[in-house]
Design a binder for these strands. Structure first.
Length: 310
DNA sequence: CGGATTTGACCAGCGC
DNA sequence: GCGCTGGTCAAATCCG
C-alpha cells in the first residue's frame, strides 16, 4: 500500500527534483483568494480572528474532484509560468512538499461525532466498532521535510500514541495526537526509506484551537503562529535545542514557512510554489489517474503533476 | 505524581 | 476465508 517511500521515484524527487521549499495543493479558486489577500496577510488575519488556515486549506479541498488519488495534473504551462521557483534554491538544505488528501470530503460533522463516539466506545470496549461504513478519515495534509529531527516542532503539543514498523521501510512510523482535549488532529511521522534525511509528516484533521505555544519574538518572521495554526512543523526552537537533541544545526530542518528573513520573498516563493503544485483549475479531463502509478502515500504527499513528471 | 513515551496486542480494511 | 498491513489502544514504563 504505502510502499512509495521505498519507491525509487520518491528519492529521485527528494534528491533531485525538489527545488521547492514547500508546496500546497489548493483549488484554483482558493489560490486566487489567497493570492489576492497575500499569504502572510491571510495568515495574520486568521491568527487573530479566523479559523486556522489549515481549515481554509481543507475547505479548499471540499471539492469532490480533488481526490488525492485522482487529482488532476497541473498543466505544463502552469509550471513553466514559474521557472524562478525552480531556479530558486531558497533553502538548499531543505526541501518540503505538501498536498492534501481529501479522503473525508463532505462529512465534517459526521466524522467528528463518529470519531468521538467511536473513541468512547473503544475505550470501554474494544469490540464494538463501526461496521456499517468505512472508517471516516480526516483530510490529510502531508509534506516532507529534510531534517535530522523526527518530530518537528510545529507549535502544538503532541502525544505519541503509537509506533509501527512500516512495510518497505526500515524506519518506524510514529503516530501523534494533539494533546488538546477535543482536538482530534493527528499526525504521522516517518522517515523516507530511500532518503533517511527526509521526514514525511502527515497531518490529519484540523486544530480546533490556537497554538498553545506562543512564538518567540526573537525569531521574528512575521507570524510563526501562523504556521503553527497551520499545523505545520516549524523551526521555532533555537539551534541549541537541536544540538541538545544531538541533531544537526537547525538549518537542516527548516519548515516550509521559515523561508528566511525576507518576508517579501516569502509571499512570492510561496505563491510560486503553490502554483506549481496547484492541481489546476477544476476537474480537468486530463489524463487523470490512469496515467498515475499507484504511489500510495506518495500521492498524498506529492502533487500528481510531479508524480507524472518522471 | 502527573504527563509523556514505549510497546505488544487488537482491530479493520484490503488483496488474493 | 485468510494473511498482511496500517492504525489504535492501553498497560507498563520512563522522566521531570
Amino acid at each position: 500500500m504505502e510502499d512509495v517511500l521505498g519507491n525509487s521515484s520518491y528519492s529521485e524527487y527528494t534528491a533531485n527534483n525538489f527545488p521547492l521549499q514547500s508546496m500546497f495543493d489548493l483549488s484554483s479558486s482558493e489560490d486566487e483568494k489567497i493570492r489576492s489577500l497575500g499569504f502572510m496577510d491571510l495568515l495574520g488575519v486568521q491568527d487573530l480572528i479566523g479559523p486556522p488556515f489549515l481549515e481554509i486549506m481543507m475547505a479548499a479541498q471540499q471539492v469532490p474532484s480533488l481526490n488525492a488519488t485522482q487529482v488532476s495534473p497541473t498543466p505544463p504551462s502552469e509550471k513553466i509560468e514559474s521557472p524562478e521557483v525552480i531556479n530558486q534554491p531558497a533553502t538548499p538544505n531543505f526541501s518540503s512538499i505538501s498536498s492534501v488528501s481529501s479522503e473525508a470530503l463532505n462529512d465534517e460533522a459526521v466524522k467528528v461525532d463518529d470519531q468521538e463516539e467511536n473513541q468512547q466506545k473503544t475505550k470501554k470496549q474494544l469490540k464494538p466498532k463501526k461496521t456499517n461504513q468505512k472508517r471516516q478519515r480526516e483530510p490529510r495534509f502531508a509534506f516532507m521535510t529534510k531534517s535530522e529531527v523526527d518530530h518537528l516542532e510545529d507549535g502544538y503539543r503532541w502525544r505519541k500514541y503509537g509506533q509501527k514498523a512500516v512495510k518497505n521501510s526500515s524506519f518506524p512510523r510514529s503516530y501523534y495526537r494533539c494533546t488538546t482535549a477535543s482536538c482530534n488532529v493527528k499526525k504521522r511521522v516517518e522517515r523516507s526509506f530511500s532518503d533517511p534525511s527526509i521526514v514525511v509528516t502527515t497531518y490529519e484533521g484540523q486544530h480546533t484551537h490556537p497554538s498553545p505555544i506562543m512564538p518567540r519574538p526573537s525569531l521574528g518572521l512575521g507570524s510563526p503562529m501562523s504556521a503553527a495554526a497551520f499545523g505545520m512543523p516549524m523551526q521555532r526552537t533555537p539551534p541549541h535545542y537541536y544540538q541538545h537533541q544531538h541533531q544537526q544545526p537547525f538549518t537542516n530542518s527548516l519548515s516550509p514557512f521559515n523561508f528566511g528573513h525576507n518576508i517579501g520573498s516569502i509571499n512570492a516563493s510561496f505563491l510560486h510554489e503553490k502554483r506549481i503544485c496547484t492541481p489546476g483549475p477544476g476537474p480537468g479531463p486530463g489524463p487523470g489517474p490512469s496515467l498515475l502509478k499507484d504511489h500510495g502515500l506518495l500521492q498524498d504527499i506529492l502533487p500528481s503533476n510531479m508524480l507524472k513528471e518522471e
